[in-house]
Amino acid sequence: MKPPPFEYFAPTTIEEALDLLDEHGWDAKPLAGGQSLIPTLNFRLAQPAVLVDLNNISDLFYVRPGINGSVRIGAMARHSQVERDALIAERVPLVHEAIPLIAHAQIRNRGTFGGSLAHNDPAAELPAVTLALDGRLRVRSLSRERWVPAGEFFLGLFATALEPDELLVEVEVPALPPRSGWAIREMARRPGDFALLGVTAVITLDDENECQAARLVFFSTGGEDPTDARQAAEVLIGEAPTPDVIRATAETAASEDIDPTGDIHASAEYRRHLAKVLACQALEQALERVTTGALY
């Protein structure tokens, strides 16, 4: 249970880090909070030749206001930092509510926002939340910079649109439109455990109280999460969100959008059941937050 040997670099600027990734390509692995990578090294499930430690790059640890009510989160902002940030709580309350669901305090003190997205663990909350909120990810390499919409960033199990010479440097999370509501729900055996299944819901109503936009994103279904439940969203969009419509939306999500698998923690059937129940709860709470105007 000890990491294999590797070459270690601890750059202090983004440019230095990009230089190292450019030079070492697939052999290099950026080290963010290390709360997934170091256990992986301890188990020797990964043996990168080079580690590029980002923890000394002070330019990556921030939460800043962006334009139009958005928030810009530096890739190395730690979960505990984001959890306590007043701007996050005010502008992107779904993120504020999701962070305490991530592991335990000890992990949140090291784990980072960008690290969680770049790792894209299918059981993680932040990829689902970032997708549900239509976040954008700023990615840099030595020669170029690009913004990747969340919908194009998460490509499957532990897979993202990042090239080996690229580094995720920032995430922009937009504010929700007026008359929006949001919620996140998950079932875990103990607080801090990875969820058996989770879902986050974001809905926006129009002037006639019909659903103008809806997003239901699942994580930890046992499939290639985060899973954007588009068929379910279609059931809801254009309708008044009555209890019947919400139930039909959750049922569609559970039966059509997700393809759960079973493991020792939960059977596929139980995950499908959870998907329906948790989606209903998330949609109901999201709706409640719109109608009571408790958004900001």
């Binding site: 249970m1 990491p3 270690y8 601890a10 290390g34 709360q35 170091i38 256990p39 301890n42 188990f43 430690d53 923890n55 505990s80 335990h104 305090a105 000890q106 992990i107 003190n109 090291r110």
Partner: peptide, 27 residues
């Protein structure tokens, strides 16, 4: 456990509790 699950190795790092088995000493 040496993989960040049991919490036995918790220390305070700059005043905050962290798991010392999933940090490198060089850090």
């Amino acid at each position: 456990c040496e993989h960040g699950v049991c919490g036995a190795c918790t220390i305070l790092f700059d005043g905050q509790p962290v798991r010392s088995c999933i940090m490198l000493a060089v850090q």
